[in-house]
């Protein structure tokens, strides 16, 4: 498998604190890669660097052979690298359907003026977005909630909506930051199936997650961070046996060891 996204010697310093320290790895086309590590290890920062919400101090991120670090986040999303947020992040006051509809924007062929005037092309876009929205909502089990105000959804559905918004952009790489947080066991197992379904749609997935059983179940490969550094990389079974990983988890206050 060819790498679709490559992280090279990525470092991010926050006034003295090194949140991500010289991290390198690559993401292969069509895989699910999990990034794990104790709280504060730098996982979210890594995602923000990849999606270009943060500028790296040094190092770079390349996507399909092109450097994307340093570009505007919306431009990186346009290329096909899209992140969801650690906190269930949605457009609260919009309906569930409108949340997904609006996130289709980067697929539009009509310009803004076209949408204002209601040109043929704009109407074709709208019809296509509506169809795709129904498809995504159905896929994520949100169809019955389409008209509900997004802010009123329970946690599990909020996460699903976050993923739906990500999918609406038609991403090539989807970065999910703790997609299973706040879910009970059953919800998590369903969400695991959903994420696998996302991958089966041809989207390469990278996720940060604390729920170890879920991580072991879902990922093809795992990258482990500790204090900003990559301490291990490998398949789930390799990681489970890795002494450095076990030490990192045992040495931390993190309750979700579960390895």
């Amino acid at each position: 498998m060819a790498p679709i996204l490559t992280v090279t010697n990525l470092t991010k310093k926050f006034s003295g604190l090194v949140a991500v320290n010289d991290v390198s790895f690559s993401l292969n086309q069509g895989e699910i890669l999990a990034v794990i590590g104790p709280n504060g290890a730098g996982k979210s920062t890594l995602f923000k660097l990849i999606s270009s919400f943060l500028r790296p101090t040094t190092g770079k991120v390349t996507f399909e052979g092109e450097t994307i670090s340093g570009r505007a986040p919306h431009a990186v999303a346009r290329k096909g690298v899209v992140r969801t947020f650690q906190e269930a992040t949605i457009f609260k006051a919009l309906s569930v359907r409108d949340n997904v509809l609006v996130a289709h924007h980067l697929r539009s062929r009509a310009g803004l003026a076209g949408f204002f005037l209601g040109t043929t092309r704009a109407r074709a876009d709208e019809a296509e977005f509506a169809r795709s929205t129904d498809d995504i909502l159905g896929f994520l089990g949100l169809k019955d909630l389409a008209d509900a105000e997004a802010g009123s959804l329970p946690q599990g559905h909020l996460r699903a909506l976050g993923i739906a918004i990500g999918l609406a952009t038609n991403p090539k790489v989807l970065l999910l930051d703790e997609p299973f947080a706040g879910m009970n066991h059953d919800e998590t197992m369903r969400a695991v199936q959903l994420v696998k379904g996302v991958r089966d749609r041809g989207v390469t997935v990278m996720l940060v997650e604390h729920d170890m059983p879920a991580v072991m179940k879902i990922s093809d490969r795992i990258v482990v961070l500790n204090f900003g550094q990559k301490i291990a990389e490998g398949t789930p079974s390799e990681i489970q046996r890795n002494q450095a990983v076990i030490d990192a988890y045992l040495g931390s206050e993190d309750e979700s060891i579960g390895i």
Binding site: H74, F116, I165
Partner: peptide, 27 residues
């Protein structure tokens, strides 16, 4: 008309959450 068009929807998305809008590829 503006607010009932996609532009209005995008404006509201901005009002709700600029970071999320940006991550959805909205300039």
């Amino acid at each position: 008309r503006l607010m009932r068009s996609r532009i209005g929807q995008l404006f509201v998305a901005l009002q709700q959450n600029e970071d999320l809008a940006q991550s959805a590829g909205i300039d």
